[in-house]
């Protein structure tokens, strides 16, 4: 039973990592690629950590996994926020289909 749960968690995690990888190849501009990286990759790491905890349960492993999980969840959005801010300040344009940009229109 445990083996099945671990297998399903690992397969789901690798599918979400594949989503992040395909997103970074297929999406059109920097901001949308950042969407893919921020969401799918961190969810995939969380699923892998759950698989490790279920497969080899001990309190030390659980503590380490919760620590990594909290760290990922807290810092990935901050990092992508900073890079998005810098890339907007550098003036990288949005791709076709952009309907509004209030950050440019309000500060000029």
């Amino acid at each position: 039973m445990t083996e099945w749960i671990v297998s399903i968690l690992i397969i789901l995690g690798s599918l979400f990592m594949l989503v992040a990888a395909l997103g970074i190849v297929r999406l059109h501009d920097v901001y949308m690629r950042m969407h893919a990286i921020t969401k799918a990759a961190s969810l995939s790491i969380v699923l892998f950590l759950l698989a490790v905890v279920v497969h080899q349960f001990s309190w030390g492993t659980l503590f380490g996994a919760i620590l990594v999980m909290l760290f990922i969840i807290a810092t990935t959005p901050v990092a992508s926020h900073m890079i998005a801010m810098v890339s907007h300040m550098m003036g990288i344009p949005m791709s076709k289909g952009a309907v509004m940009d209030e950050l440019t229109s309000e500060n000029k």
């Binding site: 395909l22 059109h28 076709k96 289909g97 509004m100």
Partner: peptide, 25 residues
């Protein structure tokens, strides 16, 4: 987090289309 990843997966699996995206305040 789970819902946004699933939505993103659905969006990437579909053939190429244009998104209506932008920056709002």
């Amino acid at each position: 987090l789970v819902m946004s990843s699933v939505l993103l997966a659905w969006d990437i699996a579909r053939p190429r289309k244009t998104f209506t995206h932008g920056i709002v305040a």
